[in-house]
Amino acid sequence: MSFWHKTLDKRPKRGMWFLLFGIGVVCLVIGIYEGQLEDVYRKAVMICLECIGIG
């Protein structure tokens, strides 16, 4: 059996998806609670001179 056939047999099931999605939700909630979205916003509403090759 080739490597990829073995890999296919180990194709992840829905449980792993729930775990990763759950981690995403938990991280986002913690981030919101810690005010990190404010940081995202503060950076995003100023022209980032580095990003446009000036800074």
Partner: peptide, 20 residues
């Protein structure tokens, strides 16, 4: 940021978009 912090919010976005 000056002090090292875990970027939970951004990780949350990555995990949500990535898992979907």
């Amino acid at each position: 940021q000056r002090q090292i912090q875990v970027p939970f919010a951004v990780l949350g976005f990555f995990f949500l978009f990535g898992s979907i």
